[in-house]
Amino acid sequence: MIHITINGKVVQAKDGEMLLTVIRREQIDIPTLCHHEAVEPSGACRLCMVEITKPSWDGWCDYVTSCLYPAEDGLIVNTHAPKVNELRSSILDMFLARHPKSPEIRQLAAEYGVMKTQFEEVVDGDNCILCGICTRICDTMGFKAISMVGRGHGKEVAPPLNMAPAACVGCLSCAKNCPTNYIEYNMKNGGLTIWKKDFEMIACTECGATTITKEFAEYLSVNRDIPFDYFEKCDACHRKELAGTMGRIANWDREARS
């Protein structure tokens, strides 16, 4: 265990754990847009930057992304130093100029006092903030169906060659974790369409309710050694089944006693 000072308060931390983890544990609110606990930090959005210093640094301060900076003993962290606040609002201003229509961005920017961007709004700017959460989750889950394509201002998230990705199983993790809800998908009539690929949902053999796609179930069954018939009922019908089994046993017990 080591000790670091965050906004004047001495707190304990594990050596090497990232500053953001410690800051969040202390219930201090700093914004992030590219952070997700399921994946490695990337340091793309730069919103979690904090001011750090040490007594031995002779008054010199550094500005680092807390999601990627390992805690060291004696570090003094200021999560809301004036320069940091200014940087955050400036970055949110840039985001707002690029994605003027995104409600999520507008709300976050407003929290930092940016109601309207001082920069030139990007005409027909989409809501993808290129945080890479979707691609990193897809990589971590082992599918690698989508990735960042291109660079700079024209970068986008897309499957290879912009065609229905063979590797995609339709787990929807990309869409569900998108901070700006940009990734579109369509679920109707027991089917799912995402990234231009069509999937069939598994319908519960009892009630017809759907949970995941057939491709995803097959993937889990093959790669994770889960019997495929587990996927053939929905959770509610599984519970009913369990209640029935336990009920029968309890009833035998009851009858045996009486």
Partner: peptide, 25 residues
């Protein structure tokens, strides 16, 4: 630089773009 920015971090990708827009203006 805007053309060659990798597009990963916001200040470089969006900030330089906005600088360019101002200079263009």
């Amino acid at each position: 630089l805007v053309e060659e920015s990798c597009g990963k971090c916001t200040p470089c990708c969006e900030g330089l773009y906005q600088l360019l827009k101002i200079v263009e203006r």
